[in-house]
Computed example of a mutant assay.
Amino acid sequence: MRFLAMPLLACSAVFAAPQAPVGPALERPALVSRQPQRSVLLGAAQAGARLVAVGERGIVLVSDDEGTRWEQVSVPVSVSLTAVRFADERHGWAVGHGGVVLHTQDGGRRWVRQFEGVAAARALLEQAQKRGTGVSEAQRLVAEGADKPFFDVHFFDARRGIVVGAYNLAFATEDGGQTWQPMGDRLDNPKSLHLYAVRARGNTVLIAGEQGLALRSDDGGKTFKRLATPYAGSYFTAELPADGGVILAGLRGNVWHSRDGSAWTNAGTAMPVSFTASVSAGPDVLLANQGGALFRLGAGGVEPLPTPPGAPVTALLPLQGNRLLVLGLRGASVLALGSKP
């Protein structure tokens, strides 16, 4: 099996104590933490006025005061959760290890399991058997069980969504996650490279992955075209900024910006530290790296933000008042960005 070549901090909280095997962890609720806000947190989203953060061992936190106080809520699994997204203030989805997909209908207070790796492998096998190709590979996935993670999720509305993960795992739903259909065959990814990030703006969908992989759809994810990117290393994060362009960032401080997906500008730093998180904040794109440094992508490239260095960063979420929620190995913190230079 190929090694998951991604930042350690985004790979099931390896800086913490080892996790239990995935199978039992899919059936066991998350343990209650004494200091959940200091846990390894990997993703965050806004559900109306509420903040929701997810992380190692199935931890899900909610905050109703923009990150001042956090409360852990009950979750039916104890696998690490890597990303969370909300379609509106009530309907949200979290994904993670074991191919798990969790769903909430009350803004993140209560969660149910919708999907997991065994069901994903069986769906792939059923698809392969119908088509008469790829059956042996799908059978291998079934035999290996729920050992492959989803890394990211996007929902266009409360019914249509996409999840992506390791080894070209990609599924789509049209009914709010009640059923999931394999969509890896839509992707030009013959090596089954890992898919680390999915972003969407309108009908444009961008998927970024390892070994320079970038895929774009202009019809809401029905079809995808592989982009020719100038870097052969992994892209761990991506954005579709308001100007209609494409931004890819990842290994060794690489950041690439394109207006049309064909001509690229290197906007990275001289610091060979991998970018692990990004977010579009109005007209700006903010990035964070494995060293805990924050940056703004401006006309002159990546500009460091005057913020104190911290622990490795896993996710960013803009807040009101020019503030930023920063997640990482030390939990959640809120930073004031100040005015632009």
Rank of each mutant, 00 (worst) to 15 (best):
V164P: 00
D219R: 15
V273C: 12
T104Q: 04
V54D: 02
G244T: 14
K148S: 03
Q19I: 01
A17F: 08
H103V: 11
S274H: 01
A238F: 06
F156G: 01
R2Y: 03
L4K: 01
S274M: 05
P241H: 14
T68I: 11
Q139W: 00
V153D: 05
T204I: 12
M183G: 00
S262H: 12
I59Y: 01
G145D: 10
G23R: 13
G331N: 11
L187I: 15
L169V: 10
I162P: 00
A232M: 08
K191T: 08
Y196I: 00
S278Y: 02
K222H: 14
H97C: 00
L227V: 09
P190W: 06
L61E: 02
Q139E: 14
W256M: 07
T68C: 09
G292P: 01
G261I: 05
A49R: 15
V75H: 07
A166C: 06
V95R: 01
G99S: 11
G184Y: 03
Q37W: 06
D147H: 14
A315W: 00
E56H: 15
L195S: 00
N266F: 12
G300L: 05
E116C: 13
W180L: 08
V313E: 03
A20I: 05
A138F: 05
Y235W: 04
L337R: 10
P76E: 12
L9H: 03
F155W: 10
A121M: 03
L125E: 14
A94L: 04
A25W: 02
G132D: 13
D218A: 12
Q178M: 11
A25M: 01
G161E: 05
G300M: 03
L8T: 06
S80V: 00
A166M: 02
G117P: 06
A45F: 08
A121C: 09
R85G: 07
E89K: 15
A242Q: 13
F115K: 05
A25S: 13
N203L: 13
N203A: 14
V32H: 13
V285I: 09
L141M: 14
T314R: 01
A10I: 06
G301C: 13
N203D: 13
L169W: 04
W111E: 03
P304V: 07
Q129I: 01
Q114I: 12
N203H: 14
Q105E: 12
V73P: 06
L125R: 14
F156L: 10
F224N: 04
W111I: 07
G244H: 14
T237E: 00
I59L: 08
G161I: 02
V73T: 08
T314D: 01
L305H: 01
E174K: 09
A238V: 09
L125T: 09
A17W: 08
G310T: 04
E303L: 10
L169S: 13
A13L: 10
V79D: 06
T223S: 15
